[in-house]
Design a protein around this nucleic acid. Sequence first.
DNA 1: ACTAACAAACGGACCAGTTGGTATGTTGGG
DNA 2: CCCAACATACCAACTGGTCCGTTTGTTAGT
Lengths: 186, 186
Amino acid sequence: MDTKSHLIETATTLFQQKGYKTVGLNEILKACNVTKGALYHHFPNGKDELLVTCLLALKEDITTDIQTIFSKHLSTKDAIISMIDTLIHSFEKTGTITGYTFSSIVSEMATMSEEVRKACSDLYENIEHIYCTKLLEDGFSKEAATAMSLLLTASIEGAMMLCLTQQSTDPLKTIAKLLPNIMEKF
Amino acid sequence: MDTKSHLIETATTLFQQKGYKTVGLNEILKACNVTKGALYHHFPNGKDELLVTCLLALKEDITTDIQTIFSKHLSTKDAIISMIDTLIHSFEKTGTITGYTFSSIVSEMATMSEEVRKACSDLYENIEHIYCTKLLEDGFSKEAATAMSLLLTASIEGAMMLCLTQQSTDPLKTIAKLLPNIMEKF
DNA sequence: ACTAACAAACGGACCAGTTGGTATGTTGGG
DNA sequence: CCCAACATACCAACTGGTCCGTTTGTTAGT
């Protein structure tokens, strides 16, 4: 394979595994036996240009991948289930999630210490617990409350990520309108 | 205020704004006029210990904050709306989201270039578009499909973050069970 | 009341290693 | 001959971290 493609593939994997800041140029270079001269020949603007190239290629891959899954299934429901299933299997196999999102690249979570991971996990647990308690007061069943509190946590967390990337508060606003409707129907 | 607290507060803010890896010790030190000797006196294990301390303190703050909001409102619905509203206002005021989540700390999004942000934004747009198209085929109205595709994107994205922090596939599994139910009721 | 002893709380120089980036040299195909 | 495609050597800037000296406050003994 040509040097440039080799560089992109290796860098993409490393970025996904460890995050952009964590991965140094030398690490990428060593991983695919390419010298600095070659890198700056193909990417005159250095690391940043390499990242952008990786993201653009990845975007195409992910989009067609999801597109394929959706064309295979009749309803959105089935497609979503199949898609999440793919994610779950990938996680169980590799121990991390790299597909269908950029967050693994812009997140340093994978490289954080166990203590840090635990602190983050504890926070989400606290939040979910608050939600769950209130939902039980609202009259939800135990199972429904548990599932719903997770949906609340996840969708708000995800909406925050979307707001940051879009530089807009629209995602949170939409979620805020939708979640009450959903809760009422349960 | 004592040096240690000062250090924690300054570091927390910087970590939230720029991400852990991006912020150097010297930057923190300069920002609160503290020397390296003082830092390593209070945090013998250096940067990592400082981060963990920040996270633990932040966890308490966030938890009690959300707890307060939830105790003020009668139903979960009202509490969630109020909470998201707080997030939206905070975003509109400061230009970024730092509250109620750790993702701003473990994410490098804020420090990424405009090109990178755009690439991420485009990916989410692609994904949402796929969802939306399928939902319209399913018979959803235009507004419902738009809102629902955002909920799907956000909740899956959030669930992935939860899986990474919890080192478990449970969040995605729960979401996979819940989302079909929700889609059917619309 | 005076002081010796000790420790906590720093201040700041210094360190090796690594970072992204550049400048120059070499090579092989058209 | 020329130019793309590298390779090599090198660079300043910065990274987190260590070491040791100094100040300040507290305690204990006489």
